[in-house]
Write a protein that binds this DNA or RNA. Structure first.
Lengths: 138, 138
DNA sequence: TATGCACCCTGAAGCCACTATAGGGTCAAG
DNA sequence: CTTGACCCTATAGTGGCTTCAGGGTGCATA
C-alpha cells in the first residue's frame, strides 16, 4: 500500500503520516524500487489507533503512552484509565471556561445600545476604566 | 513606568509585552538613558484592552480590529458585534465538540472491566477492528 | 571600590500538531 | 515522449506566546 492509499483509508493527510513517522509514532515502512513508502496492514492498524486517540483529544504524548500500554496486554489497565481521566478533567476545565466566556460575550452583545462605537457596550467592557483625555500613546 | 511594573499591573509577562510590541499591538514606548522601555498611562490602557480581549477569547487579529474600531468613536458598532458573534459561534462549536468528546471518554471509562490491558475497553475502542472481525466501522 | 543582585536588553529557538511550500523524482497511460 | 498523478526530502510557517543565550544597567551593600 502506498502512502496515498493509507492516507485515504485513515482519513489522514499524506504529510501528517510522514510527520508521524518522523515523530516515531508510526514505524518507518519498507520502500519500493522508486523509494516509495510501502505500508502493510500493521501500519494501517497503528495509524488507525493514533487517529482515533487524537479524535478523542489525546495529545501525541498520551498516544505514545497508550500505544506502549496497548502493546502489552498484561499491563495494568489503571494507567490507561488515569490518562483518560486526566483527559476528562481537562475537558471539564475547558467546558467551564468556554461556558463562562460565552455568557460574558452574549451579555455584552445584548447590552449593546447605540449604532456607533461611542455607545458600544462591548468596547466599553474592554476599555480600561479611565477614559479621559490622553487616549492614544505616541 | 518600566516594563516590569507594567507587567505586574496588567498581570502580563514581560516577554509577552515585548512580543505585543513586536507584533505592532502595543506602540513602542520611549527609552531611558540605559535603553529601558519607559511606559505611560496610555500604554497601560492599551495593554489592559488587549488582555481583556484575549481573556474573552478574541484572537490577536480580532484584537487588532477591535482596537482600531475602539479608536474611532463614530465607527459603526455593527462590526464589533459581528466579531463578537463570530467568537460566540466558535465557542459554541468548541462546546459541542468537547461535550461529545467527554461523553465518549466517560462511556469508555465506565465500561472498563478487567485489571489488565487485555480487558481494557478504552484500548479496545482505540484499536483497529482486525483482532476478531469488524467491531465498529467509522 | 568591588560585588552582588534584580532588573533590563536583543535575537533566536522552542512549544504543539500539524500544514504548506519549493524543488525535485517515479510511473503508467495516451 | 509527454502528460499528469503521485511520490520524495527538506524547510518554513501557523498562533500565541515561552525560553534561552549572552549580555547591559542601576542600586545597595561590604
Amino acid at each position: 500500500m502506498k502512502i496515498g492509499d493509507l492516507a485515504k483509508r485513515t482519513h489522514t493527510r499524506v504529510e501528517t503520516i510522514r510527520f508521524y513517522e518522523k515523530e516515531g509514532l508510526l514505524p518507518a515502512p519498507g520502500r519500493s524500487g522508486g523509494n516509495y513508502r510501502i505500508y502493510e496492514q500493521a501500519h494501517l492498524n497503528r495509524l488507525s489507533f493514533i487517529r482515533r486517540s487524537r479524535d478523542l483529544g489525546f495529545t501525541l504524548d498520551q498516544v505514545r503512552k497508550l500505544m506502549k500500554l496497548a502493546d502489552d496486554r498484561d499491563a495494568p489497565c489503571a494507567e490507561v484509565n488515569a490518562i483518560t481521566a486526566a483527559n476528562i478533567a481537562e475537558i471539564d476545565r475547558k467546558l467551564a471556561d468556554l461556558g463562562a466566556l460565552r455568557a460574558e460575550l452574549v451579555r455584552r452583545l445584548e447590552c449593546c445600545e447605540g449604532p456607533t462605537i461611542a455607545d458600544c457596550r462591548i468596547i466599553e467592557a474592554l476599555a480600561p476604566d479611565t477614559r479621559e483625555g490622553k487616549q492614544r500613546p505616541e
